[in-house]
Simulated scan of single mutants.
Amino acid sequence: MTRAPICGAVKTRLAREIGPVAASALTRALTARLLRELACDARFRCMLAVSPPTATMARFPAWRAGGRVQRLAQVRGDLGARMQALLDRCGKEPVVVVGTDIPGIAREIIADALRLLRRADAVFGPAEDGGYWLVGLRRRPKILKPFANVRWSSEHALADTLANLQGCRVAFAKTLFDIDTGADYRRYRRLESAATRIIFAKNL
Score class of each variant (00 low, 15 high):
residue 132 Y to L: 11
residue 133 W to D: 04
residue 125 G to R: 02
residue 131 G to I: 03
residue 130 G to P: 02
residue 139 R to Q: 14
residue 131 G to E: 02
residue 137 L to Q: 00
residue 142 K to V: 13
residue 121 D to N: 12
residue 129 D to V: 04
residue 131 G to D: 04
residue 126 P to N: 13
residue 137 L to M: 06
residue 141 P to Q: 09
residue 129 D to C: 10
residue 136 G to Q: 01
residue 132 Y to M: 11
residue 132 Y to R: 11
residue 120 A to Y: 06
residue 119 R to P: 00
residue 126 P to G: 14
residue 127 A to Q: 12
residue 123 V to E: 00
residue 118 R to V: 09
residue 145 K to F: 00
residue 132 Y to D: 10
residue 133 W to E: 01
residue 128 E to I: 14
residue 137 L to I: 00
residue 125 G to N: 04
residue 118 R to P: 00
residue 122 A to R: 03
residue 135 V to P: 08
residue 138 R to M: 01
residue 143 I to V: 15
residue 121 D to P: 07
residue 146 P to K: 06
residue 143 I to T: 15
residue 124 F to V: 09
residue 130 G to F: 04
residue 117 L to Q: 05
residue 138 R to H: 12
residue 136 G to H: 03
residue 127 A to C: 14
residue 123 V to P: 00
residue 137 L to A: 02
residue 144 L to W: 07
residue 122 A to M: 05
residue 134 L to G: 10
residue 122 A to F: 03
residue 142 K to R: 15
residue 122 A to E: 01
residue 124 F to W: 06
residue 125 G to Q: 01
residue 133 W to Q: 06
residue 127 A to G: 15
residue 132 Y to E: 11
residue 136 G to A: 03
residue 124 F to H: 08
residue 124 F to A: 09
residue 141 P to F: 09
residue 134 L to T: 07
residue 133 W to R: 07
residue 124 F to S: 09
residue 133 W to K: 08
residue 123 V to R: 00
residue 129 D to L: 05
residue 118 R to K: 14
residue 144 L to P: 03
residue 132 Y to S: 11
residue 117 L to I: 06
residue 125 G to E: 02
residue 141 P to H: 09
residue 147 F to G: 05
residue 132 Y to K: 12
residue 144 L to M: 09
residue 147 F to A: 09
residue 132 Y to Q: 12
residue 120 A to D: 12
residue 122 A to P: 05
residue 139 R to A: 11
residue 123 V to Y: 01
residue 145 K to H: 13
residue 139 R to T: 08
residue 128 E to K: 14
residue 142 K to C: 09
residue 145 K to Y: 00
residue 134 L to P: 05
residue 139 R to W: 04
residue 135 V to T: 14
residue 123 V to F: 01
residue 123 V to D: 01
